[in-house]
Amino acid sequence: MTPSVLVVGEPHGDGLAPVTAEAVGVAHVLAGADGPVAGLVGGAGSASAIRELGQFGVGRVLRIDDPGVEGASPGALARAVAAAASTVGARLVLLGGTTFGRDLAGRVAVAWNAAAVNGATDLRWDGEALLARRPVLGGRATETRRLLGGRYVVSTRPHAFPVPERPPVSPSVEAAPAGPVPPLLLGPKRLGVKAVPSGSGPALADAAIVVSGGRGVRAPENFRLVEELASALGAAVGASRAVTDAGWRPASLQVGQTGRTVAPQLYIAIGISGAIQHLVGMMSSRVIVAINNDPAASIFRVADYGIAGDLFEIVPALTAEVRRVRGT
């Protein structure tokens, strides 16, 4: 029997977050060539979300019409996901491994009585079991977990899987089953969302490229060198703790043990020495580039490519070169 897979669509602007498309690609592979893949989307903005799912070959879409679920706590949504998974007879629920997906996964697993793993970078069946690989210990090691018991909830790490190329279909749409949500779960209220202003680059945790600056930039006003390179690359901006502790940039940009863990395709460390507490937050990046005027800096031991030199000279040259190549 081909295993049926349900992909939970993550709303983003008018459509879906890019990571949802990546999860759909994984779903097609795990469901087998013509295995059933279903999608779940929320009320507002669902028309374009449904169209997007169709473009990636999802033939059946369940739509949550209960406005109470949207903007309520993840608890209310988890119940809806569990009910939809049962309706489509899924063996696997896939989510994108963003804040949204990772936060939901544990709750869905309990509500639907499934085994769960977050942030998978590789997935394959092993008979009835599912093998999921992911970086652990801040990228210092990789663990493969065996999920057992026939029902699985998995979030996929952003950028770990390609966006699928499938013949587009026009999906069937049905209402997702609505169950009673305990009043306690409807207590929390979202007061607002400050959309990340366009032009300020992607969110740090989900970015394909991250450019981070450290104490080597010497003063808050110089940090714009880092930001300009990031902007030329369409990258997110990060920082070492030296920078956030000094208040040069907000703590939300801090990468490392006590900040965020990032794993982009490309990580550029500028004026960062490479303390272990910083390294554990970025070591599973695919390619690491370091720019530092101390050729003995530890960052060069984990980097793939290094430029030993003065960041005040190198970074503006790099920004100019990126702009030239990109024609911007």
Binding site: G75, T99, R107, N118, L184
Partner: peptide, 24 residues
Amino acid sequence: SGDEEEGLVPGALGELLGLPHFGF
């Protein structure tokens, strides 16, 4: 995240206790 669970526990715990939860 420095360890291994990557944010599964708060949601699982919330559902087990029947309480709302928020991670991150």
